[in-house]
Design a protein around this nucleic acid. Sequence first.
DNA 1: TATTGTAGCTAGATTTTCTAGCTACCCGAG
DNA 2: CTCGGGTAGCTAGAAAATCTAGCTACAATA
Lengths: 162, 162
Amino acid sequence: MARPSSTPTSETARALRELLRVASDTRGALARRLGIGTTDAAAIDHLISSSEPLGPVELGHRLGIRSASATTLVDRLVQAGHVRRAPHPHDRRRLALEVTEHAYDEVLMALRPMLVSVDQVVSRLTPEQAAATTAFLRAITEVMREYVATAPTDKQVGGPQP
Amino acid sequence: MARPSSTPTSETARALRELLRVASDTRGALARRLGIGTTDAAAIDHLISSSEPLGPVELGHRLGIRSASATTLVDRLVQAGHVRRAPHPHDRRRLALEVTEHAYDEVLMALRPMLVSVDQVVSRLTPEQAAATTAFLRAITEVMREYVATAPTDKQVGGPQP
DNA sequence: TATTGTAGCTAGATTTTCTAGCTACCCGAG
DNA sequence: CTCGGGTAGCTAGAAAATCTAGCTACAATA
């Protein structure tokens, strides 16, 4: 994300902020490689990495878009052959969106050059360094998850008070 | 980005991929906190962290949008008071976009909760761990920078051949 | 000087998201 | 059981963002 050049606490924090800014750009890069929009790429990303099945509404919630937009988004993804609408096992209101195998392979192919390089960098770590780095990454992930979760759902920044 | 659940090379790589996926979501979270669109937030992010002055065209290039869209984007940012159009010192065709102090402070305020938490996590590292982690982050940043740079500029994924 | 390439802008079309409102469905209180 | 509140998903029409195409002004160079 943004790297405020003031408050330069430490080298590590600075390196991390730089990484986060570039990391945010990788989603757009993936989208361009797949030839789809950034929201669509983010959607597939969420669907692939989610532990629980997602429906259009919940997916839209995680993407920060409205229910109606999520329906259109899923329409797009289905028509492009990236996603299937499957019924939810317990709740007949819901859908369980599934990423097609073809789309999954496409994502993997588009990411491969980065994943290969990442593995090379990781392989150069000693076991001790790897352990410390993994713990660090997980802690930072938790921090950012919290940050994302506490962002306002709606565009109510300076909302008026009754 | 996406976390392919196959090819589980290492714990560290897995943690990193999880981080990258969440990191991509932070830009949207920042945008919602600022009450602007994701492209606008990405633009301000780039303007703040760029070492050299950017004009609309170059900014649009980094965001993966067209020159015309960049002009409209800058119009939006200027009207919202986030950005100023300043003349380029040497080239009279160009503009040097400047983030206003107010917008800069807004970004800093919106990011503060995350930055504080990040600093706390960083402060728990030993000097050796910090050094190794910093080197790791920089290497990964370079990998991702390369990935973003080599993404197709246009939407030419399966383009037909003459 | 004439030519070629680039930065920025405008007009109009296209794509994406939003607001508003609908039906079908789940679940807990009476 | 059934009634009412809440949720999931969809549709229609409006609003917003981006795109294509083409323009002028300027810079670099033959």
